[in-house]
Design a protein around this nucleic acid. Sequence first.
DNA 1: TTGTAAGCGTTATCAT
DNA 2: ATGATAACGCTTACAA
Lengths: 340, 340
Amino acid sequence: MRVTIKEIAKELGLSHSTVSRVLNDRQNALVSDTTRDRIVATAHNMGYRPNRIAQALKGDHSGLIGVFMPEGHEYFFNEVLFHLRRLIERDEHELIPFTCSDLQVESSWLKLLRWDLEGILVFDYLLFVDGLGQALMHHRGFVPPVVGLFNSTSQLDDFVAIDFNTAMKSLLNHFVDGGYHRIAYAAAPGSFQPVEQRFAIYSEFVQRLAMRPIHIHIKGGTTLCESARLSALSLLSNMPELPDAIFCQNDEIALGVYRALRERNVAVPGEVAIAGCDNIPFMAYLDQPLTTLTLPVQEACKIAWETLQHRISSPDQPHVKRLLEASLTIRASSRRTVSD
Amino acid sequence: MRVTIKEIAKELGLSHSTVSRVLNDRQNALVSDTTRDRIVATAHNMGYRPNRIAQALKGDHSGLIGVFMPEGHEYFFNEVLFHLRRLIERDEHELIPFTCSDLQVESSWLKLLRWDLEGILVFDYLLFVDGLGQALMHHRGFVPPVVGLFNSTSQLDDFVAIDFNTAMKSLLNHFVDGGYHRIAYAAAPGSFQPVEQRFAIYSEFVQRLAMRPIHIHIKGGTTLCESARLSALSLLSNMPELPDAIFCQNDEIALGVYRALRERNVAVPGEVAIAGCDNIPFMAYLDQPLTTLTLPVQEACKIAWETLQHRISSPDQPHVKRLLEASLTIRASSRRTVSD
DNA sequence: TTGTAAGCGTTATCAT
DNA sequence: ATGATAACGCTTACAA
């Protein structure tokens, strides 16, 4: 069925350990050039391919890195996955993604732990909302090194996350400078909490300037965009006085809100300014390109992987809790001066 | 380090095969209730988790399904991956995605073949462009069952693909009915070939109506959107007479083209109508929501997985070459009557 | 009802 | 320079 080193050995009247030695090509392999050539040739002829599973089982170094992430097709996750994969494969490891729905975080986590992973990268910003994260890490039995990604309040020992402080304040000031004073915060219901940095900054800012906080809860709908659109439409129907600027917790929400406003002929940014977060590529292509907070995704991935590698090779180093700054990307959707 | 059945066995003074029997819970497992309970309890206490790698190595049934797909973060792929994963996990298998860049298809394919996969699903529509596909399948050594996805000219024995015939003709007629007569086809350079069904239909249609074919080659740029935008901008500068309708081979291209037109104050659909393909969710949220060809993605995934399962369990069944019809989703970007 | 032993495909440590 | 053997963790006949 599958060509193994044993078959190659039998074919040549050698032992399978000799074959293994040659094929792994350790430079100190003491094999005569003739046998080496014979082995390489027959391996090629027979279509030999080393069995990754057996290699991983064998031992100390499976070469497998798990990535634990929310299921769903939001663009951001896949962008991150893309970068992580490049980095990890460059270093001769393999990335295996494991997804989990909101409802089955624990069973998905256990599924992941069944693999012989050398290390795990976790998108924990969704997982910690309900305190599940701690539980995850405290399972009995061995858990390989874990590095968190994109949760600045992570309870993991090691994480790389984003500091929105500067960018978020810049954005709010940018709104105010543009003459916007009824600034709303749009997000999924679970996000209106002090642990959510962007929300905390917003709350404090609004309070300091004696503005009234406006919370837009995004819920219902099939996709996040559609949720946002529907929530915004209902807002437009029911709210006596509209906000004149809306910060949306991510670009998908911003897109839905944008669409709702356009459907009701509300000018963007003329009547209402919009900003999103994540800077997913599509958003620059709208009629009014979207102002957004840009995350140093690539750098975050790089540091997370480096951190994980260190933790794997030397488990007792001090914890790494790294924050990278987001930056403000201003586009037309929030510029007062741009004609609509 | 890692808790194994042997340790559980030692702990209880049993043999590891008894432990295995209990933990696998074969219904015909003949074990006394007392030992069973003891084993289950200690397994839980010790934090035992079966080793997926060892299970897969053991034998006949690894439970692993590979998905071979182009790297990059285009939305469509991840939507497909999402559906496939749901289906495959529902049937107690695990999906492992393998990505490949355009330049390293072969080495990526070999990497995939090193895993003990029970079956493989291949996005082959990119791979066959340069005839590499055949080569891939003709490697020496064992290759598990393979089912192709989304390439109607696949050279694989089994595939599930999309028939654009009806939808594409409807779209072209829709353009003509709207009074558009200079219809362009925008795609990556490799796609202007007769094997590309949509292009073939376009070519024939244009010829039949004695219209002049207009080919817009999308190239350069970092992302597909940006390529499209730049290509369209250069077109706008250089072409004496613009097309009045543009079919784009996918929605990302359509978005870039849309943006370019808006930047140059070309009215959509007033002066130029646009349509895309794939119906990725974001496109319904533009100022002028995008007309597009909608693929029955979910159904295609379902049938592909069923086909693969059949092929795995009974390798000698007749080939399955299944075509599913795309449909036309008309939105504002191509409606003549909509005010701009 | 439970234990023994072989085997999956590797790699690595010993002998020879 | 090469071969025999054990080990990774598991499943599964077969033996007791």
